[in-house]
Design a protein around this nucleic acid. Structure first.
Length: 284
DNA sequence: TACCAGGTCGCTG
DNA sequence: CAGCGACCTGGT
């Protein structure tokens, strides 16, 4: 176990902010969060700014610290927001603990292919169904309460998110029954492409492209339009200047930003502000 | 019963 | 290039 103090972070807000679909409350205990990412698993308990993780400090420093984007000062971001912008200020007040996680590129590609014209409950179910069906079952450590106040480690099982080959393996047939709907063909096409050498290179090279270039390259693939490409840039490549405009953001802009959202005012951080607004709209 | 959900595709004008 | 209907599916 490892205990650490972290500012500007709230597990619940992150879990329901619509950027990740594999952070959820541990089924046996509401206070425990289970997090699956990059082939690893950890559980966490939060009390205010204090967090207890089920991994040791070395694993936390090498893995989870990066995942939770701890090197970025979100307090500073908040200070850069226009104090006159009432809606954004309200959004930050509500979603003060939202961060942009550093998630796996391939997982984000598949996840946001699933997300189109869909809702968060169904996306979550489909992502988990993919993991259970095609992912690898692994063992890790979790947290369990042993008296009123203290925690100890316990064994857990989890499923990794499947790689392209694992998803492509069974063809269209294997993708039925996962609630993917018509998106199944996009996912199969992407899985087959990313299993090829050309696709592997494409994935690797995306990591080195700037926002403009990666957005352009993502858009060339079947099933990825402007919005999904922006989500992949923001959540899978950590281009936090990307500003995905979905149905909710459209509604926000229409209601509160008659002249359009002032993107010019926030170069390089618009995606973080978008996340505050998105969280606020869905959870107020 | 219709409409909606973190949209995109394919077709039409 | 812009506009528009179709689209899996589960929930209100």
């Amino acid at each position: 176990m490892y205990e650490i103090e972290i500012k500007d972070m709230d597990m619940n807000q992150i879990a329901v902010s619509g950027q990740c679909f594999r952070i959820r409350r541990q089924r046996d205990c509401d206070a425990v969060w289970s997090v699956t990412a990059n082939g690893e698993y950890v559980e966490a308990v939060q009390q205010g700014n204090r967090f207890l993780f089920s991994c040791n400090q070395e694993v936390f420093d090498n893995h989870w610290s990066l995942y939770f984007d701890l090197s970025r000062d979100y307090g500073q971001i908040k200070k850069e927001i226009d104090p006159e912008d009432a809606y954004l200020q309200e959004a930050v007040k509500a979603g003060w603990g939202v961060r942009i996680l550093r998630q796996d590129l391939w997982e984000m590609i598949v996840t946001f292919l699933i997300s189109q014209n869909n809702n968060i409950t169904r996306i979550t179910n489909s992502v988990e169904a993919l993991a259970v069906k095609f992912g690898q079952k692994k063992n890790s450590r979790g947290l369990i309460r042993y008296d009123g106040e203290n925690w100890q480690e316990t064994d857990r099982e989890f499923y990794t998110f499947p790689d392209p080959q694992q998803i492509a393996q069974g063809g269209m047939e294997a993708l039925q029954g996962l609630g993917l709907g018509y998106r199944d063909k996009y996912i199969l096409d992407m899985a087959q492409f990313c299993s090829s050498q050309e696709g592997k290179n494409w994935l690797t090279q995306l990591l080195d492209c700037d926002y403009e270039e990666s957005h352009k390259r993502l858009m060339t693939r079947y099933g990825i339009g402007r919005k999904v490409a922006d989500c992949i840039c923001l959540f899978g490549l950590h281009h936090v200047g990307a500003f995905p405009v979905d149905t909710h953001v459209k509604q926000i802009v229409a209601a509160y930003y008659p002249g359009g959202f002032p993107l010019d005012q926030y170069p390089g951080i618009a995606g973080i502000l978008q996340q505050y607004m998105f969280y606020y709209k869905l959870n107020k």
